[in-house]
Amino acid sequence: MKDKVKFVNACPVFLVEDVQRSAGFYVNILGFTYAKHLDKNDKFIAIYRDSIEIILVEKIKGEIESNQSKYGNGYDAYINPDSIEGVDKIYQEYKNKNVKIISEPSITDYGSYEFVIQDIDGRNLGIGLIKDKDKFFEKSNHL
């Protein structure tokens, strides 16, 4: 029997109007680093912070809309820090850099401790961690 392969990360792909402008926001304001691939067919920049990777691809057509504006609900990405205390530290870091804060850190009705920011393209990024595992997983097969 073969060993089961484990997934270690999910990498969202964000379409953007101007890939260099968007990457500049993530690097200069949110503390990411980057790898540029602007000479490729799909003009893109991969951005990294710790184990998080996001791909920014310059769109060719269509409008950029957040899940919230297009569908009325949902974050565009959710990022977990390494600890509950990390939620407050990242919140303070971003607040000090005048990042647009959509909601301050709080415990949700599903048991996560989180806050929401908006990136330069209008996407809502949830940043948080499950605080109350009993509440979060009360109706699941995960425990």
Rank of each mutant, 00 (worst) to 15 (best):
I60D: 12
K61F: 09
K61C: 07
G62K: 08
I64P: 04
I64F: 10
E65I: 07
S66H: 01
S66D: 12
N67G: 01
N67E: 02
Q68T: 15
S69Q: 00
S69P: 07
K70M: 09
K70A: 11
K70W: 07
Y71R: 05
Y71L: 10
G72N: 06
G72T: 08
Y75T: 05
Y75S: 01
D76M: 01
D76G: 02
D76Y: 02
Y78M: 10
Y78P: 05
Y78N: 09
I79C: 07
I79F: 11
N80A: 04
P81C: 15
P81A: 10
D82E: 13
S83W: 07
I84R: 00
E85D: 15
E85Y: 10
E85L: 15
E85F: 11
E85S: 13
G86E: 06
D88L: 14
D88H: 08
D88K: 11
D88Y: 09
D88M: 07
D88W: 04
K89I: 06
K89M: 12
Q92H: 10
Q92E: 14
Y94D: 10
Y94F: 15
Y94E: 08
Y94K: 11
K95M: 08
K95W: 01
K95H: 11
K95T: 12
N96E: 13
N96V: 04
K97I: 08
K97W: 02
V99H: 00
V99P: 08
V99R: 04
V99K: 04
K100E: 12
K100M: 09
I101F: 01
I101Y: 03
I102L: 04
S103T: 14
E104C: 05
P105T: 06
S106D: 13
S106A: 13
S106T: 13
I107G: 03
I107F: 13
T108S: 15
T108H: 09
T108E: 05
T108Q: 13
Y110E: 00
Y110H: 12
Y110S: 09
Y110C: 08
G111E: 09
G111R: 09
S112T: 15
S112K: 11
S112E: 15
Y113P: 04
Y113N: 02
Y113K: 04
E114K: 10
E114M: 11
E114T: 14
E114G: 05
F115L: 07
V116G: 04
V116M: 00
I117C: 01
Q118T: 13
D119Q: 02
I120H: 03
I120M: 06
G122N: 01
G122V: 14
G122I: 11
R123K: 13
N124H: 14
N124A: 01
N124V: 08
L125H: 05
I127R: 08
I127P: 01
